[in-house]
Amino acid sequence: MAPDMVTVIDLVLLALLCAAAVALILVRQLFAVAILAGAFSMLSAGLLVTLDAVDVAFTEAAVGAGVSTVLLLGTLALTQRRSEESRRRGTGPALLAVVLTGGALVYATTDMPGFGDPEAPGFRHVVPEYIVGSETDIGVPNIVTSVLASYRGYDTLGEVAVIFTAGIGVLLLLGRRREDEIQDEARRSGSGDEG
């Protein structure tokens, strides 16, 4: 039996994701870590495309692989470029906790409804109403948009408020310079002119 194309692509992407994750843990050079994190996001975006979640894949590729990689690199430029060696002590209990939690999660997936199963409980509550209403009441072919902006308009308003608050927070924390920093810079540029 030949596996279908999507399964092959999924397996390749998942294998690459695992490789990227292991490399992320092992590498100490933080520049490589930032780039690997971007690659990890790009691979996740590919997986989301195979799941037909193109909207999420868009966001993952643009935010995860694009903007946040740039911000990570910007942070590296402000701090240092190598991580400290961690002291390897007491990894036994941590490993046990991870294995137990992971095992419980894998065991729980066997109870989940099949992928795309229309009889799944999550698809029975309001979803049929949204699918019909998106066409008849709203007239928008992309159901994601009609749910996001109309049926769930309050949630999206909250999300925009969260992004707004996060942006304001960064601007307040990092946008202004402390007085000693300004003096420091003035001194540095002053001495640069003399030299």
């Binding site: 740039v70 910007g74 942070t75 992004i163 707004f164 942006g167 960064v170 601007l171 946008g175």
Partner: peptide, 18 residues
Amino acid sequence: TVSAVMVSVFFTFAGRTR
């Protein structure tokens, strides 16, 4: 809002980098 926040955050980070 999303694009303005993203560009602002980037400018803020980049503005502090020598």
